[in-house]
Design a protein around this nucleic acid. Structure first.
Lengths: 124, 124
DNA sequence: ATTCGTGCAAAGACTTTGCATAAAT
DNA sequence: ATTTATGCAAAGTCTTTGCACGAAT
């Protein structure tokens, strides 16, 4: 069974305190302030465990390695905005009308992803 | 300057004949039927050159390595549909109403991506 | 004492690059 | 003959995995 360790707690705290989805290296950098000796493999392994437990959700943007965020931030249907200036990824709530209507006849749409790019309020 | 070689022509033909965006390994497999000795590095290099020339366009879907397609197929604004059964990626024409409206106040949206997932007409 | 987790280093997938050779001019 | 492209292998990034050691029970 899975055990509750110092590293695991540190990583969980990093995600809880984060202001947006984080990549493994960012998680490591922050977790090391708590648990200096922690390694990147542990971060990857812990992320995988937390994904299996539905404690974490993967945020995949086109052309970039995955980021992760606490699953509770993902309960309502939403999408992402990436600032092309500072690189930060924000959640945006809600959705557009009927994106499935884009598909041709005979295609069944089960889900969709929308990613917005531009300049965030902080950078503007 | 850039030269027109046997390999280059073979790769260009592969893209011209393709029924959808292709990844580097798929391009290699098809090009090898024309030019047996061709290597993967040449495919990557040629793709990069063709991107610089705006002869090719990158299709990036969340969580997957890039695929590429001839740029002329990308002239009108469009998005992609990925079949979760056969894995094939299709273009879908058109767009939804005002996707920028999802962004919060103070965020400026310059572009967006939409990806649909489901089952294609061939698989249904 | 036993079990499970960790760090490290090695390996795997994908992509880029250095270099000697080959092809195109 | 000169220039640029190619193939191969080495290296680079991101992620996973094997293994001996360490921590938790």
């Amino acid at each position: 069974m899975t055990r509750d360790t110092r590293q695991r707690r540190a990583i969980r705290t990093v995600f809880a305190d984060a202001d947006g989805p984080l990549g493994p290296q960012e998680v490591l950098d922050r977790a090391q302030q708590d648990v200096p000796g922690i390694g990147l493999a542990t971060v990857y392994r812990t992320i995988k465990l937390m994904l299996d437990d539905h404690e974490l959700h993967a945020v995949e943007l086109p052309g970039e390695p995955a980021r992760y965020e606490p699953a509770e931030r993902h309960h309502s249907h939403h999408h992402y905005f990436k600032c092309e200036n500072c690189g930060k990824v924000y959640e945006v709530q809600g959705c557009v009308n009927n994106p499935s209507s884009l598909a041709p006849h005979g295609f069944r749409v089960t889900r969709h992803e929308i990613v917005l790019y531009g300049v965030c309020a902080n950078c503007a």
